[in-house]
C-alpha cells in the first residue's frame, strides 16, 4: 500500500512529509483501514502547538484520506505512523 503522510503544526511548526510504500498482507490492510475509519472523538479545539497528521493511502486504485490530531488518533494508527517515521 502506498502512503503519503504529512505531519504539521507543533511548537516547531516545520511540516514533515513521508512518502513510500508499506508492505502489508490483506488482513493487515483491512485491519488498518478498519482502525482508520473508526469514529474518532471530537478534535480538541483548545489545543495549541499540537501536531496534525494527514494520511493518504493508495491501495490499487482506491485512495483513502484521513486526518487526525494528537487527541483523536487511534492507537493502531499511531503505531502505523511511528513505523513510517522510523523507516
Amino acid at each position: 500500500m502506498k502512503y503519503k503522510m504529512t505531519i504539521e503544526g507543533g511548537f516547531v511548526g516545520i511540516p514533515k512529509t513521508y512518502q513510500g510504500e508499506h508492505r502489508m498482507d490483506n488482513k493487515e490492510k483491512s485491519q488498518l483501514i478498519h482502525h482508520l475509519q473508526k469514529t474518532s472523538p471530537k478534535r480538541n479545539t483548545n489545543a495549541r502547538d499540537a501536531l496534525t497528521y494527514h494520511l493518504e493511502l493508495t491501495d490499487l486504485d482506491r485512495v483513502y484520506n484521513f486526518e487526525f490530531d494528537e487527541f483523536n488518533i487511534p492507537k493502531e494508527v499511531r503505531m502505523f505512523i511511528n513505523s513510517i517515521i522510523k523507516k
Binding site: G10, V12, N44, N46, A47, R48, D49, A50
Partner: peptide, 12 residues
Amino acid sequence: GKDYNNAFWDGD
C-alpha cells in the same frame, strides 16, 4: 511518546 519531537498545551 517515543522520540516525540514536540511540546504542546492542550487546554488544561
